[in-house]
């Protein structure tokens, strides 16, 4: 094995190792925000509550992935979440499209669902989606259910036993 070959292989090995460290830092650890090549357009939407939505979550229309969530910020004036949606350019949506946050499965990840409306004007880059529907929070659902149950229990237990119930 000549010196040159050994040098070459050691160089490849060290470069590969450092490359792997960079990969772990950037792509996995997200040290810097990785921007992918843009090929499409971006629209914004306001939500009262985004639940567990995360950047890079999918955007689906009729179950088909049409884009990705670009970023999520809080509007300090209105205390609403401002979500930037990156949509692929071959999917056009009308201006009265409804954006809603859904959950896939019971505890699965959340995604943005788009339901197209009937407007003939299409959404353009940097425009706002006006109609939105927030994420359903499972805690709220449970507490609503518990309260409604708690309210109806006295009535149901009181009815069969009649006047025999003591306070």
């Amino acid at each position: 094995m000549s010196k040159k070959t050994i040098d070459l292989w050691v160089g490849v090995f060290v470069a590969l190792g450092l490359g792997a460290l960079f990969f772990l830092a950037l792509k996995v650890g997200n040290l810097l925000n990785f921007k992918e090549q843009k090929n499409g357009y971006e629209v914004m939407a306001r939500f009262d509550n985004i639940g567990n939505l995360k950047p890079r979550a999918p955007i689906k229309s009729a179950g088909v992935v049409v884009g990705r969530v670009e970023s999520i910020k809080l509007d300090p004036q209105t205390y609403e979440a401002v979500v930037r949606l990156h949509l692929e350019k071959n999917f056009q949506f009308s201006r009265d499209t409804i954006a809603a946050i859904f959950t896939s499965g019971l505890l699965g990840e959340q995604f943005v669902g788009l339901e197209a409306g009937g407007d003939s004007q299409m959404l353009k880059d940097e425009e706002w989606i006006k109609k939105t529907q927030s994420a359903i929070q499972i805690e709220k659902l449970i507490s609503q259910f518990m309260f409604s149950k708690a309210q109806e229990t006295p009535a149901t237990t009181a009815a069969p036993s009649g006047a025999g119930v003591k306070p």
């Binding site: 460290l21 997200n30 990785f34 995360k54 890079r56």
Partner: peptide, 24 residues
């Protein structure tokens, strides 16, 4: 599995200092 969710959730959950550096 959705590729964006695979990388996106990974990037949210993996911390540079706590996870990657400690592994190193």
């Amino acid at each position: 599995i959705d590729g964006g969710a695979f990388w996106g959730q990974m990037q949210v959950a993996v911390d540079w200092r706590n996870d990657v550096m400690n592994g190193v």
